[in-house]
Amino acid sequence: MNSTAVTGHEAATHESEPGFYGTSWQKLMMWWFIIGDAILFGSFLAAYGFSRISAVNWPDRTQMFSLNFITVMTFTLITSSATMATAVAASRRGDRKAAFNFTMATAVGGLAFLGMQAYEWYHLIHNGARMDTNPWGAPAFGAYFFAITGFHGSHVASGVLILLITAWNAKRGKSGPEGVELTGLYWHFVDLVWVFVFGCFYLI
């Protein structure tokens, strides 16, 4: 169901009339999905925020994380968002080759991000962080950290898969501008969630 919308096979062959919202139904459904997903992450972060401000000894972020490393992760994801936006523009212009290249570049950025996140998890687990305990303070930290960054990471992982499918379809001309744009919307949303995760865990 989702894959039809994402690959944009339908969109390439017959774009529907813009309705009340001024977009095709495919794009509107992607937006509805994004709003739902945003509320899901919002709930996670709200629970995290509550636990954090009510905890007596929340772990000190400077003790646990290497901010320089996380900044590189953030740059990677922001850059992949920019290449994705460029892929969408290229696809609209009818430049299939550029659409393919920039979508692939975006997927590489996503994979690099996942690799760095795996390293960060390894580092924290190695230092004793678990879902139910950690050496730095309130035990709830581990559950929130691994659940929220893990949930975001799984979004990145499925995003990479969608990007590869989109790149392949764009190259063969099966995925038109709107198909690439729908993938783009999802990818930018994943970047957007990271802005919040990055801010709430590593900066505040």
Partner: peptide, 16 residues
């Protein structure tokens, strides 16, 4: 559409 999205985000903030 813009306000539909903004309302969703505001709701997430409201939860907190």
């Amino acid at each position: 559409l813009i306000w539909s999205v903004v309302a969703g985000i505001l709701f997430a903030g409201f939860l907190f």
